[in-house]
Amino acid sequence: MKLATWNVNSLNVRLGHVLDWLQANPVDALCLQELKLPDEKFPHEALQAAGYHACWAGQKTYNGVAILSRTPLRDVQRNIPGYDDPQQRIIAASLTGPDGRPVRLISAYCPNGQAVGSDKYAYKLDWFQALRDWLDGEIARHPDLAILGDYNVAPTDEDVHDPAAWAGGILVSAPERQAFRDLLELGLRDTFRLFEQPPRTFSWWDYRQMGFRRNAGLRIDHILATSGLAAHCRECTVDKTPRGWEKPSDHAPVVATFGPTLTAAA
């Protein structure tokens, strides 16, 4: 089973990229973020023609999340229950894995926070706390669960191209990193860090100042999985190829492969 996440920074603009990537990389499920289109504009027919079921929570101009799956999706949940938030940042659904067991997937577009100390930063930390509280119950109900998305947090200095330049700033501040660790403390594993990885591997590069060409990036897109599911993870990689396409998203897909054989993640 292959699970992937990709902040496409406008599905309307990059639908062709998504379809091309899925044709070359027929993953079992793909979580998308930053759809930037309302529900009625979601291209479900084009995705269905490509062999994917879909559920989504759209929003005009901003935000929006979706899950694409080769098998039908059920028990769909939009947003964090009980958390009053007009921004569409969460969608969850269950699918049947290759071994017949149910797998719970969550596509998450976590707030950026804008600047440390700002109102949007306070909202980000509050949102992460609400996410943690909800996930605690979700994990108890769904032993095989993965939450994939743009977390807008680089967990360690290893995930930052220039730690000194970014020190204490947005996406790397101590409270943000603690919020990420709080999720891991629920029993989730960062699948990318289960394996030896090439140094300076990132998933986001600023459009400005030739960020991608200089590999001046951050690793802020993550696939976290419950321990039971992570025990079957065989590989997790960042596919930089689409970032080099014409008019790309500023993010690249992250892909985790799960198999029946236990690995060092156990």
Rank of each mutant, 00 (worst) to 15 (best):
Q197Y: 00
L73Q: 02
Y62T: 07
G244Q: 05
L30C: 02
R200H: 13
V255E: 09
R243A: 13
D206M: 02
W134T: 08
G168C: 01
Y207L: 09
S173V: 11
L15P: 12
P72Y: 04
G259E: 14
P81E: 04
P26L: 09
G228S: 10
H44L: 14
A66E: 08
G244A: 12
G97A: 14
H17V: 09
V76F: 05
S69P: 07
H161L: 02
N12M: 04
P199L: 02
T261K: 11
R193N: 06
K2N: 15
E45P: 01
V172H: 05
G100P: 06
D162F: 07
R74F: 06
W245T: 13
I67E: 07
P143Q: 00
F202I: 12
V18L: 08
I67Q: 07
K60R: 14
V255A: 08
I220L: 13
R193Y: 07
K2A: 10
D144F: 14
V65P: 07
N215H: 12
M1F: 14
T61L: 12
I80M: 00
P163I: 06
H222C: 06
Y62E: 10
D221F: 03
T226L: 06
R141I: 09
I147Y: 04
R213W: 11
V18W: 13
N9H: 05
T241H: 06
V18A: 10
V172G: 06
K247I: 14
P102G: 00
L125I: 15
A122W: 04
N79Y: 02
D190M: 03
A66K: 04
Y151N: 02
I91H: 00
R200K: 14
P72Q: 02
T61W: 11
A93K: 00
G16M: 03
L188E: 09
K36E: 12
Q178V: 03
T261I: 14
G168Q: 01
R219G: 08
A108Q: 00
R219M: 14
V13E: 10
W205Y: 03
A230W: 01
S94I: 02
N7L: 09
L194V: 00
D126N: 10
A154T: 06
L15N: 12
S69H: 03
N9A: 08
S69R: 01
D250V: 12
L19R: 05
R74S: 12
N7V: 09
M210E: 15
D144M: 10
E246L: 13
A266W: 07
W127T: 07
T257P: 09
P143N: 01
A216T: 08
